[in-house]
Write a protein that binds this DNA or RNA. Structure first.
Length: 547
RNA sequence: GGAUCUGUAACUCAGUGGCAGAGUACCCGCCUUUUAAGCGGAGUGCCGCAGGUUCGAAUCCUGCCAGAUCCA
């Protein structure tokens, strides 16, 4: 795509070398590639000039729409029903939208225009308009992809389609670059078959506006996304939780195991991190006296891009006083069932080949039970890193990087490789090892594990929760323990946050908390298997890489 | 980071050493109820970028850029 995008471009300045320093700040690289119209665009520019020469404003300020496409269709149907005839009194409407199809038949012409509510046909006759203005349609000076407004009486064509018999029309916005061509055929049963496609993934992601303009199913996906967020907020609000906003720019990052993005504040002369989670700021609010808080927002992790990872993604976390992780599980089950019910009207979800049932209660297993059931291994028989590493190599030929902590091996290698992909129906996996869970309370009568769970659906991790550690002395010991286990710069590094400990020393109520990847919820409910398909603007490498 | 694949017209794609192709779109002509409209005609390009091999390269080789899939 690079080459195509650059074709005919003037030889702009060489791409800037990547900057590894954040200060002093540099102006962002400017895209100086001038637009070089291709042949089709030259033709449209010429049409634009001819329209302007005829006194037509290409981008007028005012619109006088009276009906959406759907409202106009409904108005005609209502009028016919009321009159009990297919010849009801005339309804005059003004509709507006993008021309998606044009069929010029000599002295008569048909168009479909589309707005967010759907399509409606416009019917033009030379008799109904003066010849000059009809000529704009016939000569395709106003054409597919342009936005127009049309006024006229609602009618039915001989083929029976509700249409606007156009007596007046206005160009609303001229399109200078043609969109990809997709033709539609509406079947007898109402299904729409599309001919031609715009399927090049790279172009669709880079030019999402064109993707949306042309692919209705993509528009629908992001409508569902909005409804998922709305249903989630509605549930949490109804639970009595307070929605809050905490800093995205943080002097110290924490609350998850991930590498952060760093940036620099010039006046404060200070490095700042883009948050990798909200956890530590939200729990400070429980110290402050709120019983339950939640936040929905963006997290940033400077890690690989994959079918389920984007460097920025949407997270929801809540923390609630006076419940433990079993209380959290109850809320999570009900929340997911509520969202699915609101968005899909059912707690049965089709995902790929699976039918997933989100109806509570969900299965609850300890990670030890889950690993034992799937592999026959009781990892407590190999209670140290060396013996577990030896077992992994012997049983599965898995080699683990030397120095990997025992619990990390249990979670990533034993559980992650052999159990996680099989967890299709929603499952709470409980009691994670302590050395990967620095903010979770220790399990009762078991120093190796914590009161932590993760949720798995469709073989993917959806969320993570603890009975939150609220003992400042234990928390400080955990920071020290993590510092000994993981090196600076490791993904799992957990920097000691003295301000967080200060807050906890004032007294933090016993509480449970939860975090969930919202993008994955959207993937589940839209049956999409690639995170980029539920992100409007997924991150790609910059386009102008070719030297 | 590794492996494999992909990049040709606005879109979707053929073309694997000998004149750059198809369908749709676009352009010209005809058509007063079409709807993937139809009929007739014409045109379309840095074949991702840069080198190399060759009498000759979209095609073979090398490097680079971008993307996809799988793996880490």
């Amino acid at each position: 795509m690079t080459g195509r995008a650059q074709r005919g471009g003037t030889p702009g300045p060489a791409p800037r070398p990547p900057s590894h320093t954040h200060h002093p700040p540099e102006a962002p690289a400017q895209d100086t590639t001038m637009w070089q119209p291709n042949r089709l665009e030259e033709e449209r520019l010429e049409k634009a000039r001819r329209l302007e020469a005829a006194g037509i404003e290409l981008y007028p300020r005012r619109v006088t729409r009276t009906h959406t496409a759907a409202a106009a269709l409904a108005a005609r149907q209502a009028a016919e029903a009321a009159a009990g005839t297919t010849e009801p009194p005339e309804t005059l409407v003004t509709v507006a939208g993008r021309i998606r199809r044009a069929s010029i038949k000599g002295k008569v012409a048909f168009m479909h225009i589309e707005d967010e509510t759907g399509r409606i046909q416009l019917f033009f006759r030379i008799n109904d308009l003066d010849e000059t203005r009809y000529g704009f349609i016939k000569d395709k000076l106003i054409e597919v992809d342009d936005f127009v407004q049309a006024t006229g009486a609602l009618m039915r064509t001989t083929a029976g389609e509700i249409s606007v018999r156009v007596t007046d029309f206005t160009l609303l916005a001229k399109s200078l670059s043609p969109l990809p061509v997709i033709k539609q055929q509406v079947q007898e049963d109402g299904r729409v078959v599309e001919y031609g496609e715009f399927s090049d993934k790279e172009t669709r992601y880079r030019q999402r506006y064109a993707d949306l303009a042309v692919n209705k199913n993509v528009r629908d996906t992001f409508i569902v996304r909005s409804r998922v967020l709305k249903a989630m907020r509605e549930f949490l609000d109804d639970e009595g939780m307070l929605e809050v906003e905490t800093p995205i720019l943080q002097p110290l990052y924490g609350g998850a195991a991930a590498r952060p993005f760093t940036t620099f504040h010039n006046q404060l002369e200070q490095e700042l991190y883009l948050r990798i989670s909200f956890e530590l700021y939200l729990k400070r609010l429980l110290v402050g006296g709120y019983d339950a808080v939640y936040e929905i927002g963006r997290d940033f992790r400077n890690e690989g891009v994959s079918f389920k990872h984007n460097p920025e993604f949407t997270m929801m976390e809540f923390y609630k006083a006076y419940i433990d992780y079993h209380g959290v599980m109850d809320i999570v089950e009900r929340m997911m069932a509520h969202i699915a019910g609101r968005v899909l009207g059912s707690t049965q979800v089709t995902y790929g080949d699976h039918t997933i049932d989100l109806t509570p209660p969900w299965q609850r297993l300890t990670i030890r039970e889950a690993v034992l059931a799937r592999t026959g291994i009781d990892y407590m028989a190999t209670p140290d890193a060396e013996s577990l590493a030896a077992l992994l190599e012997e049983r599965f030929g898995q080699r683990v990087k030397p120095g990997t902590p025992w619990g990390k091996m249990v979670v990533d290698e034993l559980f992650g490789t052999h159990v996680e992909p099989h967890l299709i129906q929603p499952t709470f996996i409980c009691e994670y090892p302590r050395d990967v869970s620095p903010f979770a309370k220790r399990a009762e009568r078991d120093d190796r594990h914590t009161e932590r769970f993760e949720v798995f659906i469709a073989g993917m991790e959806f969320g993570n929760a603890f009975t939150e550690l609220n003992d400042p002395r234990d928390q400080e010991a955990r920071f020290v323990e993590m510092a000994a286990l993981y090196r600076t710069g490791d993904d799992d590094e957990t920097p000691l946050d003295e301000d967080y400990l200060r807050a906890m020393r004032y007294g933090m109520p016993p509480c449970g908390g939860f975090g969930i990847g919202v993008d994955r919820v959207v993937m589940l409910l839209t049956n999409r298997h690639i995170i980029r398909d539920v992100l409007l603007y997924p991150h790609l490498r910059r386009e102008d890489g070719s030297a």
